[in-house]
């Protein structure tokens, strides 16, 4: 993979030509860096307008001034939107890493009741889902009608963000369902059996020593109650996770409209270029048609108005003849 960098030669030529072109202004010409573009541009257009060579002076001036204005001004408003979505995605990704850690921690056997972990997981999941939902809403606002270059750029930005968002939501869903599965396993697995046995054992023991040890019995009852509360809690959690899975599925459905299927013709660069060219052509045709119909409509209206006026005048004329 050989390459050859010709930038230095190009720069040398450019500098040499510049010094040839404007020898008298050498002292004033500001040293240029790529970042101070706009300033440099306006400066040159003010200082040596006579050095422009390739176009008539008038058009060059307007072009330069408009260019300068844009350079100083901000990029279009949708860039803010796209940046916001991008930063949201970034944010969600870091949260996702945290969530992974929290899941791992919650699944580990621990002495505490794990409430703290649960709460954290809930909060994180909620946050991420919210971020994804918000980003998706923003994304819808990015779309633009028409077939100009700008709208193409917007469409593509939207697509790329949608792809990111989709992969993010898929990741989240996978994480959640894995967690869910593990959680269920834990519930049904050794824990669950243990729990059943406890109850059964408790019952048989209850029958055996009915009134012998009421205190012990109460203790056991308390444990059973606690276990019940625990299951209810888990049930609720599972419900929540399922809900958020469904929500994400909905978002995914919305996004899939935007995302490109890889390996298909839509993913081909040349196909897209052709398509854009043809759609631009079609747009132009439609526009011309619209113009034509509009003109026609205007003419027709004009004619009808005139005819009506004629009748009114005629009526007035007749009235005038009859009355006077």
């Amino acid at each position: 993979m050989a390459t050859r960098n010709r930038t230095i030669l190009f720069r040398n030529y450019r500098d040499a030509l510049k010094s040839v072109r404007a020898p008298t202004f050498d002292g004033i010409t500001p040293s240029t860096t790529s970042s101070s573009h706009g300033v440099e541009l306006t400066a040159t257009s003010l200082l040596h307008p006579s050095t422009r060579r390739y176009a008539p002076l008038s058009t060059e001036d307007t072009a330069a001034s408009s260019k300068g204005a844009v350079e100083v001004g901000l990029p279009p408003a949708w860039v803010d939107l796209s940046e916001e979505v991008a930063s949201n995605i970034q944010h969600a990704r870091s949260k996702m890493a945290e969530l992974g850690k929290a899941h791992a921690k919650a699944l580990m056997p621990s002495f505490g009741d794990g409430k703290e972990d649960q709460r954290q997981i809930e909060a994180l999941t909620y946050e991420i889902t919210d971020l994804i939902k918000r980003s998706e809403k923003r994304l819808q606002r990015l779309s633009a009608a028409g077939a100009s270059e700008d709208s193409n750029v917007r469409k593509n930005v939207q697509r790329s963000l949608a792809t990111d968002l989709q992969s993010l939501s898929v990741e989240l869903r996978k994480k959640q369902s894995a967690y869910l599965k593990r959680l269920k396993q834990q519930k049904e697995g050794p824990d669950g059996v243990d729990f059943e046995m406890n109850i059964n054992g408790g019952k048989s023991q209850e029958l055996d020593d009915d009134l012998d040890e009421p205190i012990f019995n109460e203790q056991r009852l308390a444990r059973i109650k606690k276990n019940e509360a625990f299951t209810v809690e888990r049930e609720r959690e599972i419900q929540q996770v399922v809900e958020s899975v469904n929500e994400l599925a909905q978002i995914m459905k919305d996004l899939s409209v935007l995302v490109i299927d890889q390996g298909t013709i839509i993913d081909r660069i040349d196909y897209n270029i052709q398509n854009v060219a043809s759609s631009v052509g079609q747009g132009l045709k439609q526009l011309q048609k619209a113009e034509k119909t509009q003109k026609k409509g205007g003419m027709a209206r004009c004619a009808t108005v005139l005819i009506i006026m004629c009748f009114v005048m005629l009526f007035l004329l007749i009235l005038k003849e009859m009355l006077f």
Binding site: R4, R6, F10, R14, H37
Partner: peptide
């Protein structure tokens, strides 16, 4: 190089 009066070109490769 001659046409790049605005020094917009960053690299030529």
């Amino acid at each position: 190089a001659d046409s790049d009066e605005h020094e917009a070109v960053q690299q030529v490769q």
